[in-house]
């Protein structure tokens, strides 16, 4: 698959098979196109004027997501996303989690209540927050906010969860919690995570893809890639000879 912003090519010749219900990590130096690749999967790049996939296709559940009959809202409902910086809406905690359901037309109060409880529990927030569901979300700590964002993303029961450096703005303890969460989520969801932190990739992922300058250099099970990289470039990156 090729991808470009206007005339500037951002990704070239990527071929990647993401395994079902596994955590796949995308690593690479800054500007290598990790985030762009991630954002292709739920077509968030459509928001950027001039951005398009110029060659190849992205198949999710066997369907090319750029086909004309693909409904963007349905695609994004099934491919959730968590952003680098936590961005809860300026609403209550409850409303934040319920938002995805509401925009997809769920009106049943009990269904929403259940979904809120389920997703907050999965995001390991339920015990902390069950008493103040109607407090303002912006009053939470950074780690809680990010987990709330994860809860919000999984409230619509997506099949795939995309995470764009979800821990980069957090302190180590909050990071640890999120990482535990990711491992747990992999039981129910297919997770694709972009990370800067190679230790994190080792800790959480089952597969790792290494990208460099918009090209896929190596894609392998995490253990294999980190202990025995096939490519020289991967090796030197892992050793830290360039970044």
């Amino acid at each position: 698959m090729d991808f470009c912003y206007g005339s500037k090519a951002a990704l070239q010749g990527i071929h990647l098979d993401v395994e079902y219900h596994r955590v796949t990590a995308l690593i690479g130096p800054s500007g290598c196109g990790k985030s762009t690749l991630l954002r292709c999967i739920n077509r968030m790049n459509d928001r950027v004027a001039g951005a398009r996939v110029s060659k190849g296709e992205i198949l999710v559940k066997g369907k090319n997501i750029h086909d004309a009959d693909v409904d963007l809202t349905q695609l994004r409902k099934q491919v959730g996303m968590v952003f680098q910086k936590s961005n809860p809406f300026p609403k209550t905690i409850y409303e934040n989690v319920a938002y995805g359901l509401r925009v997809h037309g769920v009106k049943d109060k009990t269904a929403i209540d259940e979904a809120v409880e389920r997703s907050l529990t999965q995001a390991a927030l339920w015990d902390e927050l069950k008493d103040r569901l109607h407090a303002h979300a912006l009053g939470l700590s950074g780690g809680q906010q990010q987990r709330l964002c994860i809860a919000r993303a999984i409230a619509t029961m997506p099949d795939v969860l995309l995470m764009d450096e979800p821990c980069s703005a957090l302190d180590p303890i909050a990071t640890l919690k999120i990482e535990e969460l990711i491992t747990q989520l992999a039981r129910d969801y297919t997770v694709v995570i972009v990370t800067h932190n190679m230790q994190q990739a080792v800790r959480v992922s089952d597969f790792t893809a290494f990208l460099h300058l918009g090209k896929l250099v190596e894609f392998a099970p995490t253990e294999e890639l980190f202990t025995n990289p096939r490519e020289k470039l991967t090796d030197s990156y892992l050793r830290g000879t360039f970044s």
């Binding site: 559940k61 009959d69 693909v70 349905q74």
Partner: peptide
């Protein structure tokens, strides 16, 4: 159709 297309738009009225 829906079997081959998991992302089909469900309602025209919303649009």
């Amino acid at each position: 159709m829906s079997a081959s297309n998991p992302f089909s738009g469900d309602n025209d009225s919303a649009r």
